[in-house]
Structures are given as C-alpha cells and as structure tokens.
C-alpha cells in the first residue's frame, strides 16, 4: 500500500504574486492561480509568454518566497523535488556523472545508475565535462539528474527550447521513456502546443498577465496512439475550446 503522503496531489493556490519594476511600479504576475495535478499525472502549464508560467514554477521550487497564497507538494514538506530548467545548469567543473550523483542524497550517491544513463544515451559520456557536450546532450544530462533523484514531483521549465526540432523531438521521446519507467507527478511549462499535446495527460491553460487558469484540456488517449492524424485532431479540438486571440 502506498503511504498517504504519496497519493496527495500537487495543489497550487496562489492569491497574488507581484514584481516591482525598475522604477518601483508593482506589476501583478499572477492573480488567483489555482489548479491541481493528480498523483502520477503529467500536466502542462500552457500559456502566452510573459503570463507567469516560469514564476509559478519558481514559487513551487521554493525560489520565490514573496507571494500570497499557498501550495502543497505531493509527499509534504520533505518531498523530494527535481527540476529541469530552461538551461541545463550543470556544474561545468564536474563531470556528467558527478553532476548527476551530487543531486542525490549523500547515502544514495553510490547507487547504480547504469540503466538511466543507458536509456538516455549517456552511457559513454559519464566522464565528460559539460563544456564537451552539445546542448542536446547537456539537456539529457539534466534529465538524468532529475530522474536519478526519484522525485515525488518533477518540474520542467521549457526543457527543450533552443534545440532544433529533430533533437527536441528525440529528447521528448527520451523524456517519455524515462518517465514511463517510473510515472512521477510532473508539471511542465511550455508555450509549444504540440509538445504539450504529445507529452501530457492534462493541459492547464493560463491567461495573459496577471496569470490565472482559463481552463483545462484533458487528453485521455494513451501517448503511443497520438499519431500525426490524432495530433491534428487534438490541436483542432484544443483550438475550439481555447480560441487564439488573433
């Protein structure tokens, strides 16, 4: 039986998050943003750029503490959290393997990670330094670091931007294969609709700034059945429900 903490959803209820501009003018980034992500669900936070998606993620990661409202992580306060940032953010002075192992708690540093490195195609690159990797490989190493920690919840902030489409698509498939091996509650920020439709169980659509939830779009179809034709249908029905402003 699962412990009670593990089945709790990710629950977000942010009343307001305000930034101050350089001239001291307050700018509301988020207002009344609330949504849930169920246990083991892969959700996408989708919205126009500048709507506060990254801010939401930073609040959930504990990097922004100045906001009103509350949130609850699955597994409670001590839950293990992992993040894949917009850039890989690997320590350049440590090898790929050291970067991955440093993210693990001390007593688990020696754990075998061969299967994970193998799945992500990093088996031959464990002793390389990040500067010796292409951006695509560095992103894979960042994914390896996130999954190695076996987190209770995984946050991804547009992890495939500034890659060419072929590499990005390859990485999305790799993400799915490591995620399917151990389905983890995940929240990914993206402004790429195709990416959201391909990867997620549910898309949470945000408004323009100040960001709040416009609605959700559930995709109950298994991922392996989302072929090109189905994707076109999904895009059409998504755009019927959430018409583009232009």
């Amino acid at each position: 039986m699962r412990p009670v903490g593990a089945v709790a959803p990710l629950r977000v209820d942010i009343a307001e998050k305000t930034f101050r501009s350089a001239e001291g003018v307050p700018i509301a980034a988020l207002r009344n943003l609330s949504f849930d992500v169920r246990q083991g669900e892969f959700a996408c936070l989708f919205g126009p750029s500048g709507c506060g998606k990254t801010t939401t993620l930073r609040i959930l990661l504990g990097l922004e503490r100045d906001f009103t409202g509350s949130f609850q992580l699955p597994g409670g306060k001590d839950a293990r959290v992992a993040a894949v940032f917009q850039e890989p953010i690997l320590l350049p002075w440590r090898t790929v393997e050291q970067n991955v192992r440093l993210a693990l708690p001390r007593q688990e540093r020696g754990r075998a990670l061969d299967a994970l490195f193998e799945t992500l195609g990093l088996a031959g690159m464990r002793t390389l330094y990040p500067a010796e990797l292409s951006l695509g490989l560095a992103r894979r190493a960042a994914l390896a670091r996130a999954f190695a920690t076996e987190p209770a919840v995984l946050f991804l902030d547009e992890p495939f931007v500034s890659l060419d489409e072929r590499t990005a698509q390859r990485l999305r498939q790799l993400l799915l294969s490591v995620w399917s091996a151990r389905p983890t509650t995940a929240l990914m920020v993206t402004h790429n609709l195709r990416e959201a439709l391909m990867l997620s169980d549910r898309i949470i659509v945000l408004s323009e700034r100040p960001g709040h939830v416009l609605g959700t779009f559930d995709i109950r179809l298994p991922r392996e059945r989302r072929g090109p034709q189905v994707m076109e249908d999904l895009i059409r029905s998504f755009e019927e429900k959430f018409p583009r402003p232009d």
Binding site: A82, I89, L91, R94
Partner: peptide
Amino acid sequence: RYREMALVYRFGAFDRIRHVLLPQLQ
C-alpha cells in the same frame, strides 16, 4: 542559477561550498 540548482536539489552546506561556491571563486 547554480545556487538555485543547489537549493532545489538540497545540497548540504559542505557540498555547496565545495562544488558550487569554491569552483566559481577559483
């Protein structure tokens, strides 16, 4: 960004100094 990464992955004080702080100051 390195400090934030260390925060998210809960590096201990010793690891933060040895693997994040000192290499940047080298």
